[in-house]
């Protein structure tokens, strides 16, 4: 049986890139390009020296995967980008979206995250790491940082989508799952 250590950095990068690109192309007709990668870090309790750098209001979607490999992915979208994504996916004008409220935007970002993490983990499942998705949840806020438990490996990928930025924060449980 393959172990998680056998998954190379480049495979993680390709897998997450393909997932983000596929979802944004299919659902929104947008092209995503990987801008920057911060590769595998296990801090063993020391403070993170590279938290996700964010500015302004954020809408963050998160979906986990549990099975032969376990972990979760946070997708960070600036609030204006989140609105943009929701109005595109739902075919609503900015005014209609305003009327529908933040809940609808949250749901759209949740679904976008669900699809992205699904595409990511389905590729890994086909490589011998079956796992299941969890139900999405959403965080909203500004000026915050998420710090996972010390035994997690963290990888951060920054994508450029038009004039917007998308950050994918991949946290994996290390060792035997």
């Amino acid at each position: 049986m393959p172990t998680i250590d056998q998954i190379s950095e480049s495979l993680f990068r390709e897998t997450i890139s393909r997932a983000v690109q596929d979802v944004f192309k299919t659902m929104l007709g947008k092209t995503a390009t990987l801008d920057q990668t911060t590769e595998s870090v296990v801090t063993e309790g020391a403070p993170w020296d590279h938290p996700v750098q964010i500015t302004g209001q954020q809408v963050v979607g998160t979906v986990g995967f549990i099975g032969d490999i376990s972990g979760l992915i946070y997708l960070y979208l600036e609030a204006s980008f989140a609105n943009d994504v929701a109005s595109h996916m739902l075919g609503m004008s900015a005014a209609e979206l305003e009327e529908a409220g933040d809940e609808v935007v949250n749901d759209a970002v949740g679904e976008l995250t669900n699809m992205t993490v699904g595409t990511f983990k389905n590729q890994l499942a086909d490589k011998g790491f079956p796992c299941k998705l969890t139900i999405p949840s959403i965080l909203r806020g500004s000026n915050f940082s998420i710090e996972p438990i010390s035994s997690a490996t963290r990888r951060i990928y920054r994508f450029r989508i038009g004039e917007h930025q998308l950050v994918a924060d991949l946290l994996m449980k290390t060792g035997d799952a």
Binding site: N114, T119, A125, D126, P130
Partner: peptide, 21 residues
């Protein structure tokens, strides 16, 4: 969004007409 070959096969056996990931 739940795909993956084995998963799809397992569910298809229960009886579905198609499977869209």
């Amino acid at each position: 969004a739940e795909g993956g070959r084995d998963n799809v096969l397992k569910i298809a056996k229960i009886g579905v007409r198609d499977y869209i990931v």
